[in-house]
Amino acid sequence: MEQIIANGLYLGAQYALIALGLTLIFSLMNVLNFAHGQMYVFGGFVCYTVVAQLGMPFILGLVASALVLGVMGALIERFLFRPVIRRSKRDESTMLLAAGIAFFLDAVILLLFGEKQRGVPKIVNGVFNWDFRLIMPYDRILIGVLAIALIAGFILFMQYSKAGRAMRALAQDRMAAQLMGVDVDRYSMIGFAMGAMLAGLVGALLVTITGVNLGMGGPTSVKAFLMIMIGGASVISGAIAGGFILGMMESVGLSVLSSYGDVTYLVIFATLMVFLAIRPQGLMGKPWG
């Protein structure tokens, strides 16, 4: 049981961090960013290039991933989403644009980084073993702690910084925020850049554990959407809760249901369908949006 809980917490921390970026972008701009998984993969490959190819320390890989993805996010918002949102009132326009960016990034990743699975050497060696009741490699513990620290840092930033307050105001009521003098364009760009940066950071963190490959983007996006549906779209606490709930469900399912074959995600999806039928806005979302 200890092992199942520890696995669930570790998975939950990484999932929550993935979901945070997605929900931030959705709450600020009402954009379903289907390219979020590809941004995560791109961040992983940037970290791989810095650490494994250039031989630099892991921390530099993390910083490089955050910077590259932050800049990429800002540029995507400024030159792609902003003009489309300005010219089209239809939600499908941004959804199609996001899907197009996902395909484009897939192609760019293949061209730049190739088709192979990539990984960087373990950043910490050794395994924590509590009498075979709980086994957890130290690098996973470190990544889990870093993920939780990043989540905490993000919450503090959103809560207490001027930019964070402006973005929360935007998320609550775009028009009212604009009337109160919030520079909508500027904070939309910062928000999108932060969302992309978070995706890149998770990719960089996990490249040390799971490695990264071209095909991880799509499934990562699906899981991220799953989390924000559980927690409630455009609610930051909901994304965190969704991430931990999904992580725990996965860990419990894989252990308890293993003898029935790969039915864990079947059960998760079935449960989610029932849950959404009862509470379509998710755990913490508001029924009115």
Binding site: Q3, I4, N7, Y10, L11, Q14, I135, R140, L206, I209, T210, G215, M216, P219, T220, K223, E250, S251, L254, S255, S258, S259, Y260, G261, D262, Y265
Partner: peptide, 19 residues
């Protein structure tokens, strides 16, 4: 011989534990 996993699994620890 029953344990399977999703191809997009990012953490194989829970998958392999029962095996």
């Amino acid at each position: 011989d029953k344990v399977t996993y999703q191809v997009d699994t990012t953490d194989f620890t829970p998958v392999l534990l029962p095996v």
